[in-house]
Computed example of a mutant assay.
Amino acid sequence: MENGKKRMALLVGCNYPNTQYSLHGCINDVVSMQELLMERLGFDKSSIELLVDEGPWSKALPTGVNIKNALNKMIDETEEGDVLFFHYSGHGTLVPSKHHLNKKEEAIVPCDFNLITDVDFRQLVNGLPKGASFTILSDSCHSGGLIDKEKEQIGPNTLSPTSQLSNNLGPKHSKPKKIPIESMLNHLASLTNMVESEIGEHLTTLFGDDASLRFCLPELDQDKLFGPHRPDSGILLSGCQTNETSADMPPMGSNGKAHGAFTYAVQSVFKAQQGPLSNREVVMLSREVLEQEGLEGQHPCLYCSDENADAPFLMWDDAQSKIDL
């Protein structure tokens, strides 16, 4: 805590063990991110909560309800000037829009498949008190735009046309952190026994009011809930553009551990830089790291207000610890 302001974090890692969707580096990602937060970014261990689906690090599974409850608890405890951080490493997916032909919406995939969508993150950001900040770092596929209606600062519409190239994961044996919508539907249908139903019908049948607001509320009610777009304190650093995948990398390098490519890139940036870094600098330097690692088709993005684009990442400054990782 600095100047009476709280710094709170929720770190979620889903490896989906013993399933056809298994990943290998997501829990490693959040464990190493916890170290970065404590050693370089001014967070106390007691203010960091981990939710993972294997290993000794958490007391609860990262289900959709558990993740949303933990995020809402963090928001409820937030006061003016507090700094909140949510790191997610796991699968992402794209959900077809019910009302817009050919449009798809971003979502993360908790371990129980109870999707958390861009609308849910928009609701969380709207619940912040004035002067607080909420930074999301999502190391998942299709994560660009994961906060609904947040302004794009770095992404396919703000950079050169080369950033819109189709995805190429690069190094062999890497795995995309995505579950295609067809696979989602097949899995959910096996649980609901509902044939030819939309994904929202499956999820509301399984989870009721605990399903995403995108499926529980009509679109007009969603618009009324959020009101007109306005500058806010939501900050999204996405592992890739909406149309791209983020890589789960096999054990390699000096640490010999599987890891998410974007999480590794962010941590590499902080190892190389001793001074404060803006949100914009973290994303642009992470792009350079991924390109050097051979992942030329994965482009991290930044979504936030103009002011927050150049604000220090997690409000880190020279007064805070400069301990090397």
Results as ranks from 00 to 15, higher is better:
residue 130 K to D: 15
residue 96 P to Y: 01
residue 98 K to A: 14
residue 86 F to M: 05
residue 132 A to S: 15
residue 106 E to L: 00
residue 121 F to C: 07
residue 80 E to D: 11
residue 134 F to E: 05
residue 114 N to Q: 08
residue 77 E to Y: 04
residue 138 S to A: 15
residue 101 L to P: 02
residue 90 G to A: 12
residue 73 K to P: 00
residue 117 T to F: 04
residue 111 C to A: 10
residue 118 D to R: 11
residue 139 D to T: 08
residue 90 G to D: 11
residue 141 C to K: 06
residue 75 I to V: 13
residue 82 D to I: 08
residue 85 F to Q: 12
residue 141 C to Q: 06
residue 74 M to E: 08
residue 135 T to P: 07
residue 97 S to K: 06
residue 113 F to I: 02
residue 131 G to K: 10
residue 130 K to P: 00
residue 84 L to Q: 08
residue 83 V to E: 15
residue 134 F to N: 04
residue 130 K to T: 15
residue 83 V to G: 04
residue 111 C to T: 15
residue 92 G to C: 09
residue 138 S to K: 01
residue 86 F to I: 10
residue 112 D to H: 11
residue 121 F to R: 04
residue 106 E to K: 10
residue 123 Q to D: 12
residue 136 I to T: 14
residue 105 E to T: 10
residue 76 D to V: 05
residue 99 H to T: 12
residue 114 N to M: 05
residue 78 T to M: 04
residue 76 D to R: 11
residue 74 M to S: 09
residue 120 D to R: 06
residue 127 G to S: 10
residue 115 L to H: 02
residue 89 S to C: 13
residue 94 L to Q: 15
residue 86 F to A: 04
residue 124 L to N: 04
residue 91 H to Y: 06
residue 74 M to F: 10
residue 134 F to K: 01
residue 87 H to P: 00
residue 99 H to W: 04
residue 74 M to W: 09
residue 136 I to W: 08
residue 75 I to L: 07
residue 132 A to D: 13
residue 133 S to R: 13
residue 119 V to I: 14
residue 105 E to P: 06
residue 73 K to G: 14
residue 131 G to T: 01
residue 116 I to T: 02
residue 83 V to F: 04
residue 94 L to I: 09
residue 96 P to S: 01
residue 79 E to P: 00
residue 96 P to K: 01
